[in-house]
Amino acid sequence: MMVLKNERLRKLLGQLLPVLILLVAVLGSILPFERAGLLASLITAILSLLLFVTGFEKKKTGSRRMVLVAVMTALSVIGRFIPLVKPVTALTVLTAIRLGGEAGFLTGALSALISDFWFGIGPWTPFQMLAWGMIGRIAGWLAEPLKKHRAALVAYGAAAGVLFSMIMDVFTVLWYSGGFDPSLYAAAIVTALPHTLLYSVSNVAFLLLFERPFGRKLERIKRLYDV
């Protein structure tokens, strides 16, 4: 019953995807569609997620590492049920700096997907997955400074809140008006300002609150079980 049972087909998909993403992005900006911008951005988001997944599929990941990512994902999904303040970003960033950027991407993207089972899956889901995934991926690249300096961690948490909100606002505007309308985007950002502020503040608060205990626990597990 599996459509992509064929290993070769999956590999081919992995090689084709980067080309496809570029193609869609270029086509989206020149096609005479009424709302090509929305379609192109949606397809680009989905293809980027697929690209990541095919890369992940190819690699060999130890079972302990896999399960640790699943544990962190489950914890942040549970966290998304806390009203108003969401520790998803904080947990994603902490996973990324302790277990690597790939683990961070997976934690962010999968938490978005799973929690959307409860909050509703929609065209916004790929964007949320990508936004939270990228927050984790970038934290993975910046792992060293983020681990060493608390100020960097605070700055990253605040920036991630703003970034997440701005990415989702791009989608909101695209969805509503089809193209990118700067005045609508500005309005969307202003309307979302309280949320953005709340995101950033709760990100920073959770990062400061969780950094030491989570860091210690994750490091202990890593040392003890050699993950």
Binding site: M2, V3, V53, F56, T61, M66, V69, L106, L110
Partner: peptide, 11 residues
């Protein structure tokens, strides 16, 4: 699982 059994396992 059709796309990536590994991601499905994680999920």
């Amino acid at each position: 699982g059709m796309l990536s059994p590994k991601t499905a396992l994680l999920l």
